[in-house]
Design a protein around this nucleic acid. Structure first.
Lengths: 151, 151
DNA sequence: CCTTAATTGTTGTATATACAAATATTGTCT
DNA sequence: AGACAATATTTGTATATACAACAATTAAGG
């Protein structure tokens, strides 16, 4: 582990701090995603499926329609229909056709889904500890700069 | 655009700045990736293919074997064999079996590949301008914190 | 030499992303 | 009511990721 230049064995200097920051965000995101995938593997779900479950727990017991799940997802272009279907096959969510609007499909997390999230919650402490290489102040600064970047 | 909470319509507060930072990195990375994809679309390549071309230009005219391409890629788990094959079909790279080691495949960027990168370089100014919502000092701070996070 | 281990790359399968087209339903306007 | 637009979701296709199994070649040790 080290600077981003070392990680990707870059010979030349980056042209600017801004370009370096872009590469650094993409690289760090991939690194985080891989760590998350390893974390969820024993529970037989992917980071993306975990994200959907978290969204549904956030609104539980109120159901969310597919479109509402989509716009809360980290990756907006992803396809909620197919992710939800995978979760449904595992019994972690329910799909219900909405009676007042038959275009709409309501999605609810099941008890089994809630129980799985509870189990995962127990591993969160260890996970958080692994992010403690940066201080709380640095995390705040990181959040401020990332929000500003997307402005 | 706004804070990460607004973006993903999160009702509850994050449990910690660290957890929020993790979500923020993943979300911002997806945002950047989408912007990049749009930028490269007119040139008919994906961000991942662009990354491989950049790596090969970095070592040009010296060829790189597949393993060297892989370890320089932003996403290490990706599959360089198939990415390189797509680029080869477009005539942007060449594959050559290495005579002294027949396990090894040398990859070189072609003149056509170099020409494409040159064309894309012309759009880089506009691209960099779009990242200027943060200052150079903020970009440096961002790089420092991300490097520290992965330590 | 011959066997075994290490290196390098390819292929198969499941998952997810990106985008566009298709389908069904509801709302609106005249 | 009928035409047309808007909404909500599904489906198809191409791309990329994740991981494991496989094959070919080279290196190493007895």
């Amino acid at each position: 582990m080290g600077t981003i230049e070392q990680e990707i064995k870059q010979q030349k200097k980056f042209e600017s701090e801004h370009e370096k920051a872009m590469v650094n965000i993409l690289y760090t995101s991939s690194w985080l995603h891989n760590k998350n995938a390893a974390r969820f593997k024993e529970f037989d779900i992917t980071p993306e499926q975990y994200n959907v479950l978290r969204i549904l727990r956030g609104s539980h017991p109120k159901p969310l329609m597919l479109g509402e799940v989509t716009c809360r997802m980290l990756d907006k272009n992803s396809n909620a229909t197919r992710l939800v279907e995978k979760l449904r096959l595992k019994g972690l969510v329910k799909r219900e056709l909405c009676p007042n609007n038959r275009r709409q499909v309501d999605i609810v997390i099941t008890d089994k889904g809630l129980a799985l999230l509870s189990k995962i919650d127990f591993t969160t402490e260890e996970w958080n500890a692994s992010l403690k290489t940066i201080t709380k102040a640095e995390a705040q600064e990181l959040n401020r700069i990332l929000d500003k970047l997307r402005d």
